[in-house]
Amino acid sequence: MARFLANRWISLALVAALIVLPGLILPSSYYFRVGALVFISALAVIGLNLLLGFAGQVSLGHAGFVGIGAYAVAILPARFDVPVLLAVPAGMVLSALVAFVIGRPILRLKGHFLAVATLGFGVLVAMVLANEVGWTGGPDGMSVKRLEIFGERIRQPRDWYWISGTLLLIGMAIAQNLLASPTGRALRALHDSEIAARVAGVDVARIKVTVFVISAVYASVAGSCLALLNGHVTPDAAGFLQSVEMVTMVVLGGMGSLFGSIIGAAFLVILPQALTLFHEYEHLMLGILIILIMIFLRDGIVPTLHRLLMERRS
């Protein structure tokens, strides 16, 4: 089973099945919306996992890039008549540029210092989005023009379910490509020993910036999708709580596990919806569940289950 999951085609097929099968039976657009939110979050979390789980570089401000992607599809079409489909790549390029520029100085920092610096970046983006009222609509946010494909306006959650599911599958495949490459080995290596990686010829500073830029682009695409799904954006999309939620998804699902990113995202998106049954105890229950998982499945849901499977087999 463990070996089975390690094969990239099989794990891609598994993700495809997890997207397609529910898509065939979900009863209402409420469920499609939740599904789309899971896929969009998972996309951002895969990107963050490359940085945090695989390369071991923490970012507490990654929602800043979600915000850039979200506001790119809000502002560019509304203020500059840029087609929505072009606004998404424009947001990706902008996020990549911002990540590249701040990446070099910030990623020289380690541990807590890196955490605080990235946190500062996220707070800065959220503040700019809240304060530049003329551009962004301020704290109340702004509405987002719907995506149009062949003259059809895409606004049904069901459509977004399939679009974001497809993007998730592509994002997963790209991340797999990266991890199986020299760049992927280098970024995993520097997690364990920067000095050994450097002695082996890895330009550690460059690889860190590369993975930071890549993870920023994942977050940006997720932000664009989120804004287009909701038809509205607020600065909260880039807020600190969003950044923390992304990190929680990575850790819960499993650092260094792509499949774990999807599970972590599904967990934190679906569970609060399910727990609304418990009314005022909703947050309490969620908190307790997270604590229990971290105590009993310390390496995250997927890696721990994976290990248990391996142990049972041998």
């Binding site: 080995r185 280098a186 290596a189 082996a200 010829g201």
Partner: peptide, 17 residues
């Protein structure tokens, strides 16, 4: 990883697999 200096470094090509 020890062969890093002999390998292609283009992250683009790596992302595209």
């Amino acid at each position: 990883l020890g062969r890093h200096i002999h390998e292609d470094k283009s992250a683009w090509r790596h992302l595209l697999g």
